[in-house]
Every structure is written in C-alpha cells, then in structure tokens.
Design a protein around this nucleic acid. Structure first.
Lengths: 366, 366
DNA sequence: ATGAAAGCGCTAACAA
DNA sequence: TTGTTAGCGCTTTCAT
C-alpha cells in the first residue's frame, strides 16, 4: 500500500521531462521511437502504471460506463450485464453496475452517484420515468435497453414480433382463448406486450384477457396463479419467464396439469426456464447482442458520433418450444373442475412431461 | 453535457473562499453554521455537486470498492454481490464489479485495471492463485470470501460443517456409499469439501469416491452424470447446486429415478434449486451475511483498523431438505439395470415427487 | 521531438 | 472560523 511511482519518477529515471513520459503513454507516435522505448523500459522496471484518476481529471475521460439494471439477481439482466461488460472491455471501458432492486428511487440515487464518474450510461430495464431518463440522458450519453423513450437512443427486442411468435405458436396448437399475466406497470415492455396481444386478438378473432399486475418474479407468478383460478383459460402468456415459472408451479399445485390443461408461454428464455418441469416454452430475446450493440453505439456517441434518437435499433426474437405448451384437447369431465390446492397430481399424466423436458428444445428461428 | 459548476462558482456566488465551500461539504461543522447554510443554498441553486474524481485525487478516497467474482451469471455470486453492494452503499461506497468468467487471467487483468480506482477489494470465489491474491492484497485492503489464503483477511462458510450436514442427512437415510462430484480444481472449496468428506468417511466407515473435476455449471453436472454411470452409488454430493441440477437431469435422462434410485445433495441453495423437479436438497450458505460481514470488515480495514489475517471469520450453514434425497431402499431387479437414455421414466414413481416439490422445504438449522 | 508551465476540481496545511 | 496557498498526477498548449 505504498505510494506507486508517478510520471515524475519515471521521467527522472529516464532523463526526460514528465510531459514526455505522459506522451509516451497517452499518445504513442508523438514521441521518438527510441526514447519511447527507453521510457517504457524504465517505467516497466519501476512498476509504473498510469493513474486513471489523475488522467481523468484534466481530460474527463474516466473510461467508465454505468450499467443500471432493475435487478441484478435476475438472470436476464446478468446476461446483459456480462455482454455489456465484455464489449466495454474491448474498448478499454470498465463498468459500474447499478442494481436498482426494482426501486426507481434507488436507481435514481445510485445513478446520480455514478454519473460524475462515468462517460456514458446503459439503462437496462430501468424503472424510472421517461422524464427522469431524459434528465439522465442530458448529463451523459445514454442508451436505453428494451424501452421506448423518445429523444434517447435505444435498442429494443422486437416486442410485437415476440408476442406474435407466442400467439402464432398457441394458435397453431388450437388455442383461441389466452390470458396475459401482467408484469410491473412501470415496465414499458409490459404495456407493449399487452397492446400487441390485444391488437392481434381483434385481428384474428381471439379471446384475450389480462390479469392484474404482479411482480416479475416467481412469487408474482404464483400469485397470478391464484387469481387465474377465477377465470381460467387453456392458454397463458406471462410477462416473463420468472412469472411463467411461478405460474406453472402455482397452477400445478391446484391440480391442473401443464400443458394438458393449460399451456404456458414466457418471455426471455432465462436459464431456469430450461430447468423447470415441464420445460418452459418461451420467446428468447437476443440478450448478448442487445448488450453489445448498446455499448458500441454508446461508445460511438461518447466519441461524438451523431446519435440516432429517432428510431430504436430493433433486434429479432425467436421462439423456443419446450414442454409447457401443447395442443388444445377437450378436457375430460373429471379434469374440468378444479381440485383443491395441495391435492396430489394425477400420476398417469405427470410422467409424460419428463422425457420432453430432457429432450432438446425445438427452436423456431424468426 | 455542459460543464457543471465547481466550488469556485459557488464560492464567488456566495462571497466566500473556495476552501470554505469545500469544507462546507467535506467536513460540516468546521464551518460557521450560518455561512454553511448560505453556501448550501447557493450550491443547490447552481446545481453544484462535488466532483468525486477531483476530490479523490488529493485524498485517495474514491469511495469505490472492487468486487470480483468468478462468474456473475451464477446466481450464487449475484446474491453475494447484491449484499456487498447494499452494505457498501450504507457507508457511501460504490462497487466496481469484476466478472472473471472463470478465467484467472481475466480476473487478474480486470482487477489490475480496477485497483487504482478502488480503496478496497472483495474477492468472491476468486480463481487466482494464492500468491496472486497476496499480491493484490499488498496493493489494497482485501478480503477473501470462501477461501483460505493465509495472511489475507477472509470470511468463509463453515465448509466442514456444511459437508457434515450433507453426510449426516444422507447417513440418516441409510446411505453409506457416496459419490462426490468434483468442481473446478482452482476452487478452494472443492478440495475442502472432498477432504472433509474423506475424513468423515474413514471416521464413520462410509464408502466414498469422487468423480473427475467438472465445470461448476449445469453442463458440468450433466457431464458428471455420464461418468457416473461407470461406477454408480445410491447417494451423490455435488460441488454445488448447479452441478447437482445438471447431474439430476443427466441421471434422469438415463432412466434412473431421483430420489428413489439415487439421492442428490448440492451446496449453496441457489434460487433454481427450489425450482427444479425434484426439488434439490442442499446445504445453504449465508450469502447475504458473508457479503455484508466482508464489506464491514473491509471498510474497517480501509479506515486503518488492525486486520485479523490469522483466523478466518467463519459463518454457519444450514441444511435445506427438499425432494432429491430419500431413504435408501433396495432396488427392484428391474430397476437395478440402467435403461437406455431417452426411454420413458416410470409413470408411477415420478408422480410422487410432484407434491413434495411444491411443499415448503423442511429446513434444518445448524 | 521535447521541455516548461498552466491547469483539471478539490483538499489540506498554514496563517490570519 | 475563514482565506491563502500548495499540491494530488496527469494532460496539453505553447515554446524551443
């Protein structure tokens, strides 16, 4: 923990001026090859490493980006964060990760703290209001993921397409009545999904309904399952995989079978969705691509590139078919009435789901 | 993106010296209450916010901590990271998250970049060598999680106790032959687990074996399952939950039943372990506590508190019993021989697992 | 190509 | 209590 060497130490040892040392590192080429070589040698020997703090002060270049996500423990965001970090690292940037923990206040506070130290911001699944986001974007180049905030750069998954994948799939299986499990009201994607579903429904003569907003978590899905009992349908689309998984479990506990009694589709294709039984049919977003595209555009903007704040960058999605969806078949009279929660599931039917879970998922590219 | 106001702007507007403005913010109390008030008012109006970069330069106080984990997409670390961030935030610290992606080289590189900007370092599941870690610890106050590096502060889960929980549980169910699925060789906890299991085995007259190292992931567990077929036992302990889950699926695919044919125990109690079918019996580590204890100690060390580098802080673990373990029962002749992969599982027995998955887990506290 | 010198915004003696 | 004055380590004109 002793004081590390500075350019002055190197300069003295190499017999040059401090400014030359600085140049040798910050703009190679602006210094004689021979002296540069000597300087680097001396620096290496002394163990000199340029102090990013000190160099950031006069230049404003901190080589840091902020990445805010609404929930870092959500594997969906973990994936994005990794992609962002990797892409950022390629350009020499380090990421400051802000975990909003589903609180817009916390997000705002943490971001305010981060802003002065970063050159740009990636907002992944922000829970802040549009105006708050614009406020942020005024201070630093900003790029928003999966949300439509006008006047701010954004990259989004093709939500209408994603919903269409889900509905196409369900319709192909004979479903014409669909329940949508709403996510958080603050989530832009939620409104987007429901609106798309609605217009698809009128267009195609489907019957759709939506349940009240729930947390985008397994617990939220379980809660939705309880509510679902009041007006069940044979097909369900959840706001995201976590909710879908919770719903799956909640509905299974009431004695209904998935997919025989109810087909369930999620969004995001998070890791766990391939792990549950039955495997969850879901629409995958190109998480990695979104992250790296976002960073590349952000870095371009930091570099002064003209930002396209008018049209969002839209990325395609794809359907991943697993075992939670199946053809709509008439329910037997016995199956038709719900059984009390906690009663044992039907032995015969449960077993069928197992092999299909372990089988590789059928993937339909967009 | 216009230049924000500085203490000079505030000083001029408030009719005081810049240093007074500085004091008003950095050490309230060292300035007259009235003038302090006026300064704050002026500052607020101008929208002044102290520039952390500039204040860090002369003081060395960046208010940043580095948190390195071997894999940020692993929910185990996500949990720790969140705890670390929360505790750090309480003391006004922001965290720089380093994602090693299971590469010691990457970890080292990224950490080297982070070091100059942070005041302290939390190493969660580091893949670096002990000497590399000591090298790091020489540069900044460092605290290591779940690993025993002499001369460095550490906080660890009680690994021997954790393994003992697992073995006690299995033994109580009548198991006396156990296979251990090894994790990465670079993981300290892996050696720790195996050694404990071994000594427990000799002590109690159990028969144990261990499989070759595999990645601590679902894929690693699936691979282990393949290997397992060469010398199966009725009880298996995996390096962690992810491996256990992979193993579960791999072994289920071969036609064996869990827990009837083989009982499986994991470590960590990650989120997904409650989601899979059958629910995974596992030994939980106090992730949150570890994170916050680590940060508190780290901050104390940064403040100059004498660090205890001799004894690790050891935290208790607890057993979480779910559906992946059961009493050892004699296998029927038919069950005894493995069936070709992909064949359907036995209808009757599979069904039993379902209700126990949805039932609340029985938890045995330590 | 290199050196001298003036900051970047803030803190911290030292005076007053 | 407040002002004056050096820096912190690096970058960047402006000279040479």
């Amino acid at each position: 923990m002793e004081r590390p060497p500075t350019i002055y130490d190197v300069a003295r040892a190499a017999g040059v001026a401090p400014s030359t040392v600085s140049r040798a590192f910050s703009r190679p080429g602006r210094v004689n090859a021979a002296t540069a070589e000597r300087i680097r040698a001396v620096a290496a020997e002394l163990g000199y490493r340029t102090n990013p703090l000190a160099s950031a002060l006069p230049t404003g270049r901190t080589s840091m980006l902020a990445v805010a996500s609404s929930d870092i423990t959500n594997p969906y965001y973990a994936e994005i964060i990794r992609a962002v970090q990797n892409t950022a690292a390629e350009s020499g940037y380090t990421c400051l990760i802000v975990d909003a923990q589903e609180s817009d206040r916390l997000e705002r506070t943490e971001l305010d703290r981060a802003i002065p130290v970063v050159e740009g911001i990636v907002l992944a699944g922000s829970r802040m209001s549009n105006s708050a986001i614009r406020q942020i974007a005024k201070q630093r180049p900003t790029i928003v993921l999966n949300r439509d905030v006008s006047d701010v750069q954004r990259v989004v998954a093709d939500h209408p397409q994603a919903m269409q994948h889900a509905v196409d799939h369900l319709q192909a299986l004979g479903h014409d009545q669909i329940t949508y499990l709403s996510g958080p009201e603050a989530a832009w994607a939620d409104g987007m999904r429901w609106r798309t579903l609605l217009s698809l429904a009128t267009e195609r003569g489907l019957h759709v309904q939506h349940l009240a907003p729930h947390a985008p978590t397994v617990a939220g899905g379980v809660a939705a399952a309880t509510e679902f009992r009041h007006s069940p349908t044979r097909a369900v689309i959840a706001y995201n995989d976590l909710m879908a998984i919770g719903f799956l479990r909640g509905v299974l506990a009431t004695g209904l079978r998935v997919p025989q009694d109810v087909s369930v589709v999620g969004f995001d294709n998070v890791f766990a969705s391939s792990l549950v039984t039955p495997g969850l049919t879901t629409v995958a977003a190109p998480l990695r691509t979104m992250g790296s595209v976002a960073v590349r555009n952000l870095i371009a903007a930091i570099g002064g590139a003209p930002a396209n704040v008018h049209t969002p960058v839209t990325l395609p999605t794809r359907l991943v078919v697993r075992a939670s969806t199946s053809e709509r078949r008439p329910r037997s009279a016995r199956r038709h009435r719900r059984r009390p929660a906690g009663s044992a599931a039907a032995p015969a039917s449960r077993a069928e789901a197992v092999p299909s879970t372990t089988a590789p998922a059928r993937v339909t590219s967009s």
